[in-house]
């Protein structure tokens, strides 16, 4: 059974790109374009990890993280946050939302997938 990864990005082309890369590496990506959809998917189906973009149409990525942390079924799910900038402020926000990994855009897909593999492996 393939490891499921939740990919949340409102930019369709970036979402498809990451999903394709994950498929090539043997994962099962599950994609969402809004925070609301992502939270519903994560609660219904167990995900090994979530990749969350900060800029979303309905709520920001931090709000998604907060809601995931509140729910017992998703509170321990590792999260990688994708952000336009990764300065001190972002790291503080990440820490406050229980996020250990922030990746700046434009990211290197290969490196992102490698990071994701390490996190999933460490969890297993």
């Amino acid at each position: 059974m393939k490891t499921k990864i939740l990919v949340l990005d409102d930019e369709e082309s970036l979402r498809l790109l990451l999903c394709d890369n994950l498929e090539f590496e043997g994962f099962e990506p599950v994609s969402a374009s809004t925070g609301k959809d992502a939270i519903e998917i994560a609660k219904k189906d167990k995900m090994a990890l979530a990749v969350i973009d900060i800029g979303l149409p309905d709520m920001d990525g931090w709000e998604v993280c907060r809601r995931l942390r509140e729910d017992p079924s998703t509170k321990d799910m590792p999260v990688i946050v994708l952000s336009g900038s990764v300065g001190d402020e972002i790291h503080v926000l990440a820490k406050n939302h229980g996020v250990k990994h922030c990746v700046a855009k434009p990211y290197d897909c290969t490196e992102l997938v490698e990071l994701l593999k390490k996190i999933v492996a460490a969890k297993v």
Binding site: L14, L17, A104, K105
Partner: peptide, 13 residues
Amino acid sequence: RTPLAIMHGYAET
């Protein structure tokens, strides 16, 4: 960054 990420990511893939 967004269009750059798109171009970079797809070229790399």
